[in-house]
């Protein structure tokens, strides 16, 4: 964000670089590295919330960090921590977390067309595939810029998310009782924030969310902890079968998903 110049007079309608920012990407070509680092820093900080929630759920600091280093996909990480917190079946928790990560496969599919990674180059590239990196990469005008944006965003987000996870985990570990600090509400609030943009985007999304939540709550008394959440996926299946997307999701498909780490909020 360019600093407001102070030597240009006290004009309240100063039309400096800030005005160009508001005009949006159409008015000015995006700068992939600057944008990527900005997004990575802004989004990665929410790793603090994950670190705190994970330790509050009973994971050790190292388990929280291992998830951020190896899984590196916010929604799945929060989900596993949540099931562990409620004393649920580890198998169900793992299955739910992996199911949540399934959309990253579709992002990989789209990104492969743009980034064209070859051979072993796919191994490091795969780590960086999440909502945010996909959205910023597919928003670039050409493959070269897209590759630069992907690399810059991936690295910055990865490093920030992991440092923030460690910070949040260590911080939460120092708190006596996580409940006294409201850490048990961090997970539910984070989940809601992650899907909020999707709920605003369509009728089907709202029905699927309501259906999933209702199904999970109704089956909670009769099924092992963690399983009702997986069962909620049938609401997504029903939604996909009865109301297919009107338009082919392109770049906006990834952007519209909100964010893996923050629901698209910065």
């Amino acid at each position: 964000m360019p600093a407001q110049r102070t030597d240009s007079g006290p004009a309240p309608d100063y039309a400096g670089p800030g005005a160009a920012d508001e005009a949006g990407p159409a008015a000015r070509p995006p700068r992939p590295v600057r944008d990527g680092i900005g997004l990575g820093l802004a989004v990665g900080v929410s790793g603090l919330a994950f670190g705190a929630a994970a330790v509050g759920s009973g994971l050790t600091v190292w388990q929280a960090c291992a998830l951020s280093i190896l899984a590196f996909t916010g929604a799945s990480q929060f989900a596993l921590a949540g099931v562990i917190a409620s004393g649920g079946s580890l198998l169900a928790g793992t299955a739910g977390a992996i199911l949540l990560g399934s959309r990253n496969a579709l992002y990989g599919l789209r990104l492969a067309e743009v980034l064209r990674p070859r051979g072993l180059g796919r191994l490091p590239a795969a780590v960086g595939i999440v909502d945010e990196t996909t959205a910023i990469t597919l928003a670039q005008p050409d493959p070269v810029t897209a590759r630069t944006a992907f690399i810059a965003t991936s690295w910055c987000l990865y490093l920030t998310w992991n440092a923030a996870t460690l910070g949040g985990a260590l911080g939460a570990g120092r708190l006596g009782s996580p409940q006294a600090f409201g850490i048990d509400v961090v997970g539910p609030a984070a989940f809601l924030a992650l899907i909020w943009p999707r709920l605003a985007s369509g009728h089907t999304e709202r029905l699927v969310a309501l259906g999933g939540a209702a199904l999970a709550l109704m089956t909670t008394p009769v099924l092992p902890v963690g399983v009702p959440v997986i069962l909620a996926a049938t609401a997504a299946l029903a939604g996909a079968l009865t109301a297919p997307a009107v338009a082919e999701p392109g770049a906006e498909g990834a952007a519209g998903t909100g964010g893996d780490f923050t629901g698209g909020r910065r």
Partner: peptide, 29 residues
């Protein structure tokens, strides 16, 4: 197309369910 749509909707269903379950249940109650 349907596979894509399913993958888009899975996070909506699962995260809504997780949020609900973690807000109003403890264990199986």
């Amino acid at each position: 197309r349907r596979v894509r749509r399913f993958a888009e909707l899975v996070p909506v269903a699962l995260l809504a369910a997780l949020s609900a379950v973690q807000t109003v249940t403890t264990g199986q109650a």
